Amino acid sequence: MASIARCLRAARPSTLSRLAQVPRTRYNWQPATLRAFSASPIRDIRKYTKDHEWIDLNAEKTAGVIGISEYAAEELGDVVYVELPEEGKEVSAGDTIGAVESVKSAADINAPIACKVTSVNLGLEEKPGTINQVPEDDSHGGGWIVKVQVGEQGVKDFDALMTLEEYKAFTGSEEH
């Protein structure tokens, strides 16, 4: 969804300028009455771990997306390799689901909750640096790691994770 909103925001100024050049009709239509598209009422719920992973759950809390935080991506430096888990792998909270290697160091990626891996971001194998550019983007070209299916235990685990505000306080940063 994030990429759709970005595209619309990028296209909006040129669209409005084209519409402003259209001669007024007898209905006195005003281009200024256009409103921007917004898909914000239903938002995935994002939480963070102390190991700097994030997870977005859908509104039903049945599926989610996992990645590493912007803070972790900055601390790692330029990511040069990403190890991804196998699809279908079932994990408990805290289990290793992959790893990232950078020019500075290497780190495991841990499952923030109990879940089953349903999809992996194969784009990271070819372009691991995507994690540095957009670590918290769960769109097609983003730096997310895996998509998961969540059960009852996963929802319980999710409730114990940190909100964005708690995570910012934990890292001591204004931005995550």
Rank of each mutant, 00 (worst) to 15 (best):
S92E: 15
G88T: 05
V120W: 06
K50T: 15
G67T: 08
A32P: 10
G98C: 11
L124Y: 04
A72Y: 15
I55T: 05
P13N: 06
A73F: 08
A32Y: 00
S17W: 12
S17P: 02
P31V: 00
A72K: 03
K50F: 09
R35K: 13
D108V: 09
V117N: 06
S69F: 04
S102N: 10
A72S: 04
V80M: 08
K127S: 12
E70M: 09
W29L: 10
L84A: 11
P41N: 14
A107V: 11
I55W: 12
Q21R: 07
E125P: 00
A107C: 08
S14R: 13
I109E: 02
P13F: 08
L76P: 02
A72D: 05
S92K: 14
P112G: 00
A93F: 02
A39F: 15
A32G: 15
R35N: 05
L34E: 03
W29E: 00
I109W: 03
S38M: 06
L19V: 04
V120I: 14
T25S: 10
I109R: 12
R12E: 14
S102R: 09
N110P: 00
K104Q: 01
E53Y: 10
G98S: 13
A63E: 15
A99P: 05
I68V: 15
I42P: 04
S40K: 14
D78R: 07
E86F: 08
I55A: 09
P41S: 15
K104W: 07
A72I: 12
R18M: 12
T49L: 09
I97K: 12
A106T: 14
I109V: 15
P31W: 00
A107Q: 13
S14G: 13
P13E: 06
E70K: 13
K50M: 12
S102K: 08
N110M: 02
E86I: 02
L19F: 02
A73R: 07
D95K: 09
R35F: 02
I55Q: 07
P23N: 01
A111P: 06
G77N: 10
D51P: 03
S17F: 01
D44S: 11
K89G: 01
G123H: 01
D108E: 14
G64V: 14
V82R: 01
E60C: 04
L57R: 06
D51Y: 13
S17L: 11
G77S: 08
L76W: 10
T118W: 03
V100G: 14
